[in-house]
Design a binder for these strands. Sequence first.
DNA 1: AATGCTGGGTCGACACCTCGA
DNA 2: CTCGAGGTGTCGACCCAGCAT
Lengths: 338, 338
Amino acid sequence: MTEQARRRPTLVDLADAAGCSTSLASIVMRGAPGASEATRRRVMAAAERIGYRPDQRARSLRRSTSGLIGVAYHVSEPFHADLVEGLYEVEAPSGDDFDLVLGAVVPGRGVEQTIEPLLRQRCEAIILIGTMLPVARLRRIREETPLVLVARRVRAAGIDVVRTDDHDGQRLAIEHLIGLGHRSIAYVDGGQHPGAATRRRSYRDTMAAHGLGDRVRVVAGGNTEEEGIRATRRLLEGDERPTAIAAFNDRAATGVLTMLIRAGLRVPEDVSVIGFDDARIARTTIVPLTTVRQDTALMARVARERAAGLARQRFVAGEQVLVPELTVRQSTGPVPRS
Amino acid sequence: MTEQARRRPTLVDLADAAGCSTSLASIVMRGAPGASEATRRRVMAAAERIGYRPDQRARSLRRSTSGLIGVAYHVSEPFHADLVEGLYEVEAPSGDDFDLVLGAVVPGRGVEQTIEPLLRQRCEAIILIGTMLPVARLRRIREETPLVLVARRVRAAGIDVVRTDDHDGQRLAIEHLIGLGHRSIAYVDGGQHPGAATRRRSYRDTMAAHGLGDRVRVVAGGNTEEEGIRATRRLLEGDERPTAIAAFNDRAATGVLTMLIRAGLRVPEDVSVIGFDDARIARTTIVPLTTVRQDTALMARVARERAAGLARQRFVAGEQVLVPELTVRQSTGPVPRS
DNA sequence: AATGCTGGGTCGACACCTCGA
DNA sequence: CTCGAGGTGTCGACCCAGCAT
């Protein structure tokens, strides 16, 4: 039909089709003031007719600011997915016309490689969800662009943090168990994952605060169902079976539940289980999971506001600590009489 | 320190710092032939020193091709997350130096809104994972850029499809149950989700082919644990309890398992359960799930190859159908003697 | 004075061409 | 003729100054 492969229409083509200058076409396409209502309709109609679509690359290049916020997150982590959903659902506050650019962290592709493209696109701020990059590396990224860390605690000048109070949250969980009469409470650890160190410490602190320092029992775990299962198997092989198990997060807790029930134990009659996060799965586990709620929608909103504000230099980096809340479902109960 | 906010270094700054022309600096930065080894080292050192980072927007604008493949997927769908991981893990075939751009589909933000930014970035192909856009809309997108549909069947000229044979897969599942002696096999449906219609039909066809046409029983379900739970509750309220339940996917099957066990039934002694997908969770459900395997790594690789090939016009759109495989675990067993 | 509109310069990198050993 | 190097125009849209009413 056409004598060569059809070139995508540009602003010049649009201007031709609408019979006006490119400047005016540009004004209409970006909804800027300075065009009459009649012209606006004419240009929009022409755009529709010729299939014009603004080139984001040229637009972003020409503008002084890219209008982008980068988000690095682990694709296969449901908790991260919840946060990303939250980021999109935030009603863009007036004046915050940032778009989000996702950077996927996947096995074999480190956070570094994920962030590189975000920087090359000149994101004006980067939200890092639960990544364990060394502080030195964070600092260097911070030199190039504002950084908001979500769900990870870091004490470093210039780096913004949005997190739930892990220490307090884990305390709520352990005290809930203690309140139910439990003394033999084991802890399935989260290893190197964000928040794990703080939650582990809180478990220890809380046990000690209630005179149970000598009952502390931490087993290696992780942030997946598999690791929860393995940790529980190890616990059950031991001499003394705990009457309650607290896990680093809900996925691990789900594994704990699974293993206990596979082993023929009843929850919560024989063993109580408590998680952390109040992830979506917590409602549909075999026994609905008692857990500590992190408000992902709120975290997402705060993170986005912080990122936008930092990008526009409306405030300086700081730390936003959100309050966790105990959500009691059915996986915890009174200590069994033995 | 500096008299104004520090401007990001550009190629010009780099050329100054390295004492060469911008052309030469450009050649070095993109690893093109035409620079001596000595120059290369000098420029790279200068880049490191002044913190130069190529501007992706300018680069992409100037090149004739953007070098991007867009990927639209549902953030909170674990099966999609697996596919996205797979897309990144593909060893980029030589010559395929495409980068991936993610477009997140989240509640309240339709596929349309997800795709728009991908088109504005001039992606050279778009991979759509399991979305239910009407065919007419798909065709219109296809006019702008090559389209690869993953895990959804569509008969439309010009649209590339990569999918597992849902009909055959569901047949494997049902025949596995029939082979174990089951006659009363219920089906938890997937509603409007991709593949659901085909799998439902396959359930019906397979039952009929084995003389069980009058035992067909489809209950409304969905693609989540919640919906699996609700569907099963409805099934259990009925008069005749099925001896086996097949579900649209593993998440729904997990809900089925959960509800059965909450109701005090044993799996597979009282009721067998079979899923679809072989998602990650299938191994860690309360009873390891028998299911039909979709090879996400392979689907991802094929999808990426197709997308790259279509972008470069190396081949025309077609349909790639992958073979499903039964994975027997422990949630299925012989029909109980009554 | 305010509104509607136009033209030229520019964002940053690369493609292409030229030139000197 | 090959190889390393430099200069210039361009990708597409937007900003700004300026010109008409």
